[in-house]
């Protein structure tokens, strides 16, 4: 029963497919040649897909980790009595971060920090902050008043209330925000290739510039699988957290 359930899991199949394509895209060479006659080479070969994937993973992971830490910390701050007055300002800042197109952030960041990974991480960080802050605030505010009052009345200190009550109860909602943020970041990271970051967007942009459609297709399929796999993993993490929250 358990083995069967594991076999039926989409995480396994999407993961295997992504791994197979990252390592052995050349298997599809004959098929791609038939689909796009006259394009040579038909499989992107300037960098290995695995290297591109790992580089993008690193960019997304560092930007999302930073956005999660900063976002949750800001949400905690504005939902405490001391930070209450800053609530509107943090909301506004996060919204501005989201409204700014990542391409514009790249354009501004490049002259300041140079080409490559750094402007990409900055853009992803700013772009990913809003869903995390908004969900974290919503999750922390959804902790029932009765629970908060009981915790205070029994003598939990402010720090104990935060770590033992507020954050665990808000965790599913906070995680949902991080899930949205990371999934968006994976897609958005591809434009980092326009400023010299190595991502799975690199074959896409090279393909567009050199009019080689198979490159675009290869990059796009890999990015999509990457995003889907990540989303599935987060869904699993959320389910794992759920029973504890009742």
């Amino acid at each position: 029963m358990d083995a069967k359930r594991r076999l039926a899991s989409p995480v396994l199949w999407v993961g295997l497919l992504l791994a197979a394509l990252l390592l052995r895209m050349d298997v599809f060479q004959p098929l791609l040649r038939r689909g796009f006659p006259g394009v040579e080479p038909v499989v992107y070969n300037r960098d290995s897909f695995l290297a591109l994937f790992l580089s993008q993973l690193g960019l997304v992971a560092s930007a999302s980790l930073a956005a999660s830490l900063v976002g949750v910390a800001l949400a905690v701050f504005v939902t405490r009595p001391a930070g209450h007055d800053f609530r509107a300002m943090v909301d506004a800042l996060a919204t501005v971060g989201q409204t700014f197109p990542p391409a514009a952030v790249l354009a501004i960041a490049v002259p300041m920090v140079g080409f490559g990974a750094r402007p990409t991480v900055i853009a992803l960080f700013l772009y990913g902050l809003l869903p995390i802050i908004e969900n974290a605030i919503a999750g922390l505010e959804a902790v029932p008043q009765s629970v908060r009052e009981a915790a205070e009345g029994m003598g939990l200190s402010a720090r104990q209330r935060l770590y033992r009550v507020d954050l665990p109860l808000a965790a599913p909602v906070i995680l949902a925000g991080i899930r949205v943020s990371v999934t968006i970041a994976i897609g958005t990271a591809t434009i980092g290739s326009t400023v010299g970051a190595l991502t799975l967007g690199t074959p896409i942009f090279d393909g567009l510039v050199a009019n080689k459609l198979p490159f675009v297709l290869e990059g796009a399929v890999l990015v999509a699988l990457f995003a889907i796999l990540t989303d599935l993993l987060f869904a699993r993490l959320e389910r794992w957290l759920q029973p504890a929250a009742g």
Binding site: P144, E149, G153, M154, G155, S157, L169
Partner: peptide, 20 residues
């Protein structure tokens, strides 16, 4: 305040059990 409250039992209408 925390030390005081740990010495005094407190029960309320809305109970406020920790759901997790």
């Amino acid at each position: 305040a925390e030390a005081l409250r740990r010495r005094i039992g407190y029960a309320i209408q809305s109970i406020g059990l920790f759901p997790h």
